[in-house]
Nucleic acid binder design. Structure first.
Lengths: 195, 195
DNA sequence: CGGTTACTTGACTAGCTTCAAGCCTTGTGG
DNA sequence: CCACAAGGCTTGAAGCTAGTCAAGTAACCG
């Protein structure tokens, strides 16, 4: 989902810079803005009382995030933070609704973006039916865009990130990856993972 | 999401009856139709190789389901089956796209339905960060519509269903509910659960 | 070069899953 | 109205294994 920056600015949008690790919104907050990444990396995640976190999505240049709560005017079900120094354009709810009203093609694009997001979340449910760590990791990797059997690819995630997406502990991820490497299900060269 | 039945029929939709336990589509199938429940109960779920299943959603009268794959023309990420004898209106992809084109208010309603569905899926991520069975069950119950602290409510799910939604084994659900009952966190009267 | 973050390894343990067996409840048909 | 079947619920015992804790090592960044 990407709304043209000029349209956003015309309807009252403006850019904001976030430092690395800065919070954009917290679980439970009431939403005020539509957000679109101009530059940087945003992580949306859920955390529980003990501080354990589960990564839900990563958003980069051009991606919008947090649209469902702003459209529905419901408290955020998750939190968002900048993973690196990032610039984000934000616009108030009214401005977003005006844009949707004035530009049917943007509303349509948003519909398809939402469809894709539901689709991806449904697919990642495979992670939660999986009983073994190996299966969870495989399911997670299958859902990454660069995954295909043709040529070996560098896995673009750290072990910690894999742990955050699959709900496993980092030690379990490490041990499982080593086991899979021994069983020749993937390759580890110089700490880097290839599939 | 609900499209007026007359509109569906005008654009080529028609009703189909499914017996109890009949499959509507399977994970991996290419989608051909938009489905809307006229009567009955449809379960959408994911299953893994060992036959363990994870319930993703229940759809009833008026609800549509399986829209993201049909819009995106991507293989179903999950399966759907009738939990009881059900009647469903279905319509081919072209008809659905025509309706979206001809009725902007339906496209708009679909946008908000999708937003709600993403929202609910994001919330249910709380189940997957939870480390203990009790926490998972509590998070699941919190996401049920009838949940509120005001008056005690009958939990409208069987233990087996709670297990299917939380990814726990039924024995674990039973033991956890009994423990919670002893700790007065909920009530069990005659096998029925109240919160 | 120093600090931070990621990665690794080993030992131990809690507690969920599994297996097995039986009880309870509900709906159906004769 | 009763008997039976099917599915849901319950319990106990045992085993596995992912999580936890601790103590490092290795890579990366400014």
């Amino acid at each position: 989902m990407q709304i043209d920056n000029n349209i956003l600015i015309t309807y009252g949008g403006y850019a904001i810079k976030y430092e690395k690790e800065a919070m954009i919104f917290h679980e439970g907050d009431l939403p005020n803005y539509y957000y679109q990444v101009l530059e940087g990396t945003i992580k949306v995640y859920t955390s529980n009382a003990e501080g354990k976190t589960l990564a839900q999505s990563i958003f980069k240049n051009g991606d919008s995030f947090g649209e469902p709560p702003i459209l529905l005017s419901l408290p955020y079900p998750n939190s968002a933070k900048a993973k690196e120094e990032s610039t984000i354009i934000r616009i108030a709810r009214e401005g977003l609704l005006d844009i949707i009203r004035d530009y049917p093609e943007i509303a349509q694009e948003m519909l398809f973006t939402f469809a894709k997001r539901i689709y991806d979340k449904s697919k990642s449910a495979q992670i939660w039916v999986s009983t073994t760590p190996e299966e969870k990791i495989v399911q997670f990797l299958k859902n990454t865009p660069s995954y295909n059997q043709e040529t070996p690819q560098l896995v673009p995630y750290t072990r910690k990130q894999i742990a955050e997406f699959t709900g496993l502990r980092i030690e379990t991820v490490i041990r499982t990856l080593i086991k899979m490497h021994k069983e020749k299900k993937l390759n580890i060269i110089n700490h880097k993972i290839y599939y």
